[in-house]
Nucleic acid binder design. Structure first.
Lengths: 204, 204
DNA sequence: GAAGAAGTATACCGATCTGTATCGTTTGGC
DNA sequence: GCCAAACGATACAGATCGGTATACTTCTTC
């Protein structure tokens, strides 16, 4: 294993264990044992356990968001359908046998102080996710893209929280149906050139 | 302090600390220090830390659900408005300065194994909460009370998850608006004696 | 008021925690 | 092919973890 790969391998292992057992319940000794790496090596790459957590969250944040973007852009072209397609991505994530709830929600739940760097990293991820929803809502020409984005995000969070307990994918589909119904009743501003000029057009 | 009060005081203290720091991060030594009680005393009331957690969750479960029932019954009489009033109760909970997310979601997030008693206790609480929503949805004569209850629950979970991060009460109000809009479009079965016989009546 | 249960205080147990130190081996870059 | 950096292995430090043991005191109850 090349040197630069070790860091990635450590992050992968740590993320898997954090997801499986949580952050406090996952000890450094377990991480290095599962990664097949000496303790010295881990601490050469990450100063503290918190640094490891932060690096892992940062990595997962980028992976998750780019994966959602790719999925959505591939599965739908209409902006409204893209908003709804985010729930299909969510469903796929939840269907993973390893799904045990959103790791960012768990991270915030185990580091509840708002000034804690781990908490802040989790908040940052959610902010960026909402920003993407807002981008889609803006492209769909909804009159209030910020509010739409917050609503989509709330449904995502709800679906993940329910799925964390039930361990089934249905909440994701249910959230999608709810989103579809809500979006269908939303005001949209007219397109720049032509398009529908009506004030209450159907969303899907 | 009377003997029987010690157990309650320990549960109060433990719940406060679990809410503030999480379950793994809250040590037995901190709990007894905050409660002003000897370690022997704690272990006379609870065999293990897990037993303490389970007792604390059980207590909070009953408190929460009866508090919600009382709040809802006092603030609304119409069944549909009662479903919406659950979000007012949620908003009040979230407004609490000590709010750091749903302690049952956190409990499940720190004890992710589905066979873990703590996880199961958290699931049980959510099941009972949904049962109450279903009871209200049934009273409101919605055609599919089970689905309605699941949707209300999903919105509750979403609002709490978002509020856990943002530490503001707005998500609860937003969830209420979403619920109101969704319920307004729902089919309802005619009342037994008289009442509206229409198939798509207004919910609120 | 005696008896027994339950309280306090403290010391202790073994395990585990994060993090460091030591030292010999491997490896990549010039 | 040399050298320095990074690796593995291990031992260890100091703190904290959940939980127990002991000895003394306080309260409740009959």
């Amino acid at each position: 294993m090349r040197r630069s790969e070790i860091r990635d391998h450590l992050l992968d292992t740590a993320l898997r264990l954090f997801n499986q057992h949580g952050y406090h319940a996952t000890g450094i000794d377990l991480i290095i044992a599962e990664a097949g790496v000496a303790k010295t090596t881990l601490y050469r790459h990450f100063e503290t356990k918190e640094d490891l957590i932060l690096a892992a969250l940062e990595r997962r944040d980028e992976e998750d968001r780019s994966a959602m973007r790719a999925f959505v852009e591939q599965h739908a072209s209409d902006p409204v359908e893209r908003l709804l397609a985010t729930f299909d991505f969510l469903e796929a994530s939840v269907r993973d046998k390893q799904f045990r709830g959103c790791i960012f929600v768990s991270a915030a739940g185990e580091h509840k102080d708002t000034v804690n760097p781990v908490f802040r990293a989790a908040v940052m991820h959610k902010r960026l996710a909402i920003a993407y929803f807002e981008e889609l809502a803006h492209a769909a020409r909804f009159a209030e893209p910020k509010r739409i984005a917050a609503e989509i995000n709330l449904l995502h969070e709800g679906a993940m929280a329910v799925a964390q307990m039930t361990r089934i994918a249905e909440p994701a589909r249910q959230a999608k149906r709810m989103a579809g119904q809500l979006l269908a009743a939303e005001e949209r501003v007219p397109s720049a050139r032509g398009g529908d000029a009506g004030q209450r057009t159907q969303a899907s």
